[in-house]
Design a protein around this nucleic acid. Structure first.
Length: 129
RNA sequence: UCGGAAAGCCGGAUGGCCGCGCGUCUUCCUUGCGAAGGCGGGAGGAAAGUCCGGGCUUCACGGAAACACGGCGCCGGCUAACGGCCGGGCAGGGCGACCUGACGGAAAGUGCUGCAGAGAUUUAAACCGCCGAUGGCCUUUAAGGCACAGGCAAGGCUGAGAAGGUGCGGUAAGAGCGCACCGCGUCGCUGGCAACAGGGACGGCAAUGGUAAACCCCGCCGGAAGCAAGACCAAAUAGGCGUCCCGCAUGGUGUUUUUCCGCACCGGGGCGCGGGUAGGUUGCUAGAGGUCUGCGGUAACGCAGAUCCCAGAUGAAUGGCUGUCCCCGACAGAACCCGGCUUACAGGCCUUCUGGCUUU
RNA sequence: CGGGAUGUAGCGCAGCCUGGUAGCGCGCCUCGUUCGGGACGAGGAGGGCGGAGGGUCGAAUCCUCUCACCCCGA
């Protein structure tokens, strides 16, 4: 997880938007572009268009961050910068469904690792507990 | 028991696993940095709107005052300060507990007061009206009639507003014309720190309509901007300064009255310095601080003692999954920090008071 | 986070300071012109001051609160 830095500057976000590929799903939008120095980073975007209230936007951002830590580290190719953009459905969708949607997005952008280790196994473990 | 009023408080609770970021301690290490582990703490009553008041910082500035502009505005107190709070007065509302109030000055001056209406602030006005005592005309014994001169501001009408109100007297009809009470004004008296209240004498009211959230007058307050303030470190690139070396063919500028000669600068490279951008560090949380107790004060609040340390992020920390319980969870997220105001808000707790009904 | 401005017919704007009638251009409708349309000419309608409260006799205008949108400071 140490390898996963964060996109911090506006120019980074603009670069990913300009150079990268995009896939839109119901609850989130994923943008991906090749990283600059071979490292992987991710960033989050939640605009005021989605909701005016800071509480709602914070909650969406936190769910996206949890998703990034769980899914990207397990399934996504390294050496790539990712940007997760929140939508209104991000607030209410169940976490399992969002895991699947993010994996689907990765697959469509051809960033999926060839041998996916198991987000699903972890989930199954938790349920049994 | 059913309504109502006021003041205060709470804002789901408690666990498990995996994570986030802050402080601190220990250990490891290549000791700049980082890693692992332990411990502690981790959003609100409004964190919001940014409407006021301060602290803090930079800029400006002899101290200061005045003009302009803006804000505030019954009186007294509290406070670091306030447009806040507490207490009191006055006015309005409510059966009441209580609530509400931009609440100085219209007798310093200027402006505005559309339409309607006879008339809207110089002396206000005669449309419908009332009277016609006095004078005039007609009839005529007298009485009476006409409504010409005129008198009137009581009634109607218009309007948001017609300029003291009610009653009695008075009169031709009327009128503060006279009187009583109320209102208003002036001057004493009494109570109160004061706002103001009570009562007295005088005035006789076209004195003094309304509007100051129109200009304004009076009193008080205010230098400006804001942590993206400000301070420090500082890459690349370009330019600046100093110094050394190389070059100085031609040309330009300065020195010179002019010409020639000479000197300095304008070129390139190295080193150093300073400003400064990206970026980073800091400001950054111990404070007009919280809790408890005692004392003073009607209260806001103050004083004293004890005790506690209680978010400090910077693409921005509270998340993911899940167990149990209940009334099934509203409004909503710190961003330099405090004191207020305003706005949003499911539900619940407690205290005091008030009105109705019933029972004793 | 801080600073500043704007909300008026379907669209773009004036009026607000100094309160009483909401107006202009484009658009829309009808008629004329034309074989028909456009352009042009004549006539007309529609309804609008972001929302709530206040003071005023009376508010688009004055005051307070609130909502939306935009701009500036990296």
């Amino acid at each position: 997880m140490k390898k996963w830095g964060r996109l911090k500057k506006r120019s980074d976000f603009l670069r990913v938007q300009r150079e990268g590929k995009k896939w839109v799903s119901k609850s989130l939008i994923l943008q991906a572009a090749p990283g600059t120095e071979g490292t992987s980073r991710f960033g989050l975007t939640v605009t005021k268009k989605i909701d005016k209230r800071a509480v709602i936007r914070n909650r969406i951002r936190r769910r996206l961050r949890a998703l990034a830590y769980d899914v990207l580290t397990e399934k996504a190719l390294h050496g790539t910068d990712y940007v997760l953009i929140g939508r209104q459905d991000t607030l209410d969708k169940s976490y399992d469904e969002m895991c699947k949607e993010l994996a689907w997005c990765l697959k469509r952008l051809e960033c999926l690792k060839p041998f996916p280790t198991s987000c699903k196994k972890r989930e199954a473990g938790h349920v049994s507990q």
